[in-house]
Every structure is written in structure tokens, then in C-alpha cells.
Design a protein around this nucleic acid. Structure first.
Length: 269
DNA sequence: CTCCTATCCTGCGAGC
DNA sequence: TGCTCGCAGGATAGGA
């Protein structure tokens, strides 16, 4: 489900629910997610929750002995409930000290859970590029990453080594706002457009976070609330509908194996 | 290296 | 109604 705004929304929800709470036990009901889950979670991922962090699309629940790392993949959710009432695809159940439960559910099992002991680093986090909303992500940084590349710009900004957190929805929205054709070769995007693209990536992600993320299919915040940014999509899933700026019909095609929508008139940069 | 494709898995909506 | 097909927000292995 989740790109950066949705994961950040989940992080805020978990922070509100869990900081000050304590995990007293972890039960794995099924461990074969994207890769097998570690066997010892029940023995190590316990204690008072010290904080909830996000890096790229990963969530980290900080505990005294280390951090519980999770990635939601396409369909993962964290659900908090007073009572654990099992549902299909509930893979992990954390018991909390107040008797409530935190459940990781993921039908497609593209998600991931792991344990990072305090002081150790994670291979999952090692190769990640800059956070898009940090000051370190600038037009110059993007220019360097795109320079000389013969790949289309859209798959490049979805590459987590270039910049993290941008997935298929927000890549399309940011390119539309920056007026860049998704199929434009990365190395041919002008320096000015690189600046604009960075500005628009930051803008669209910030606006989506402020809206509580986008609710598509089953995305929910940890408390069950919905985001509403999906009402503001300009191009995503709008093939054939009129461009919000020029009214030309939006086109769609495949790019890097992913469906992509754009305005053939507005996006020529 | 770089770029592209196929693939992991389940659920859902479209179309017949 | 019930079936099949294609597609879905991510990430990565492997081939060209």
C-alpha cells in the first residue's frame, strides 16, 4: 500500500499508541513473508517502547534491546486492538502490557519484519538514498544521480538508492507537477527541471502527509482511520480523464513494468 | 556497471 | 451468478 506519506502516517499513529506502552510478548503465526522472519522475536522484541522511527518506507519500533524493523510491502498493515480477533493474514501479534494487541497483517506477504539488535546495522537500510524531505535532498543531489543515465526518469526517482519513499503514485504526481514526461531519459532532464522536480517531490509528499496519506484499497492508519489525499490525485489512475490544467485526455502506458499516467500536453520537459 | 524483465503472493474488479 | 483474466501502492534476482 504504502509510500512515504502512508508509512509516515502509520509511524505517527504508532507513536501515539505505543510510546509509553510496553510489549510483553510477540507471537509469529506465519513467518514466510518476503523472507523468513527471525525465530527469536518473542524473546527479544519486548520491553517498553522507546520511540517509533521511519527510514524510507521502513518502520522501526525502538525497544531496550534493539529495534523491530518492518516494511509494509504492498499490502501490509499494523492494527491496534483491545482484543485480538484473528483475521486472515494476521502474521504477527504483539501483546502489550495493558492487554491490548498490535497485529501485523499482510495478504500478499511482500512485507518484512526483522530484528536489529542495538549497536548493529541492517543490510536493509544500508543502501538507501537520501530522505526526500531532508535538506540533504537538493536539485544538485538529484542532478548528480541522474547525470548520464539512459533510463527513464520515472523509474529512477522510484529507485530507493536515488531518493527513498517515492513509489508509483507519488512519482507520477511529482512528474506531472514538474511538467516532466515520465519517459524522459534521466540524463536529459535539464538542471532547472531537476530543481523543480525536487521541489515538487517535497511538496507532494508533504501535502500527502498533512492529509493523512492516501487511502487506496485497504490502507488504514494504525487506529483504523483513512487518509484523504487520494481525492487530490492529478494523474494517478486517471487515464482518459481530462488534465486538471489543460483538459487534454491523460495518457497511460507501462514504464519499468508499472502503469504510468501523464498529460501529453503539459509534460514535455 | 546499467538497464530491463520476471517474479514473489493474494484479492478484487471488469468482462464475458 | 460464477468464472477467468489482468492488474495492484514494492523490491530484488538474474539476464542481456
Amino acid at each position: 500500500m504504502p509510500e512515504l506519506p502512508e508509512v509516515e502516517t502509520v509511524r505517527r499513529g504508532l507513536e501515539r499508541l505505543l510510546v509509553g506502552a510496553a510489549i510483553t510478548g510477540v507471537t509469529c503465526r506465519r513467518r514466510d513473508l518476503r523472507r523468513p522472519m527471525p525465530r527469536n522475536l518473542g524473546g527479544v522484541a519486548i520491553g517498553p517502547v522507546l520511540g517509533i522511527r521511519r527510514r524510507a518506507k521502513y518502520l522501526l519500533i525502538d525497544l531496550p534491546g534493539g529495534s523491530l524493523l518492518s516494511h509494509l510491502g504492498m499490502t501490509g498493515t499494523w492494527r491496534h486492538a483491545a482484543e485480538f480477533v484473528p483475521r486472515a493474514h494476521d502474521h504477527v501479534v504483539c501483546q502489550l502490557a495493558d492487554g491490548s494487541h498490535l497485529v501485523f497483517n499482510d495478504p500478499r506477504r511482500f512485507g518484512l519484519l526483522d530484528w536489529i539488535p542495538t549497536g548493529q546495522t541492517s543490510d536493509d537500510l544500508a543502501q538507501l538514498g537520501p530522505e526526500p524531505l531532508d535538506g540533504g535532498f537538493t536539485g544538485e543531489v538529484l542532478r548528480q544521480a541522474l547525470a548520464g543515465r539512459k533510463q527513464a526518469v520515472k523509474p529512477m526517482i522510484m529507485d530507493q538508492r536515488v531518493v527513498v519513499g517515492v513509489g508509483n503514485i507519488y512519482a507520477q504526481e511529482a512528474l506531472f507537477r514538474a511538467r516532466i514526461a515520465p519517459s524522459k531519459l534521466a540524463g536529459r532532464v535539464s538542471p532547472e527541471r531537476c530543481d523543480t522536480l525536487v521541489t515538487e517531490i517535497k511538496a507532494v509528499l508533504s501535502e500527502a502527509i498533512a492529509a493523512g496519506g492516501s487511502t487506496i484499497s485497504d490502507f488504514r492508519q494504525a487506529g483504523g482511520e483513512s487518509g484523504y489525499f487520494q481525492t487530490r490525485f492529478a494523474v494517478y489512475d486517471r487515464a482518459g480523464q481530462p488534465c486538471t490544467i489543460c483538459r487534454a485526455p491523460l495518457r497511460h502506458g507501462q514504464l519499468g513494468g508499472r502503469t504510468t499516467c501523464w498529460c501529453p500536453r503539459c509534460q514535455r520537459g
